[in-house]
């Protein structure tokens, strides 16, 4: 298949149960979003794994890179006071 005929790639997200977040389950090729939804149903929810599907153009996803992890997350490492466990309270009142 020539590159012009390549179908677009879509990422598929499935909500397994009402109230839960949609979760990424995989991707697939489709000619448009509507078709992607139908393919996703056939591919990813054959055993009623979900109650709702989202499809998103893969090219629309902007992702951070592993190599950038340092500049993204390092500043958080020296802030232990953001965690509840940083505050030591006596047993008598420790249930908050």
């Amino acid at each position: 298949m020539s590159s012009e005929q390549q179908l677009k790639l879509f990422e598929v997200f499935v909500r397994s149960k009402r109230g839960l977040d949609h979760k990424h389950v995989g991707s697939l090729h489709a000619e448009d979003a509507e078709q992607a939804l139908e393919y996703a149903r056939d591919c990813y929810t054959r055993r009623s794994e979900g109650v709702s599907i989202w499809v998103v153009n893969s090219s629309d996803i902007v992702a951070s890179q592993e190599e950038d992890a340092e500049s993204f997350y390092d500043p958080m490492d020296d802030k232990p006071y953001r965690h509840a466990t940083h505050y030591q309270l006596p047993d008598a009142v420790n249930n908050m």
């Binding site: 109230g19 977040d21 006071y81 953001r82 965690h83 509840a84 940083h86 505050y87 030591q88 309270l89 009142v93 908050m96």
Partner: peptide
């Protein structure tokens, strides 16, 4: 509901630092 789950996780530190 989902926003509340996220918020509750973060709140505990708020109360504890105040009490401390």
């Amino acid at each position: 509901a989902r926003a509340m789950v996220r918020i509750c996780k973060e709140e505990s530190f708020h109360q504890r630092q105040g009490y401390e």
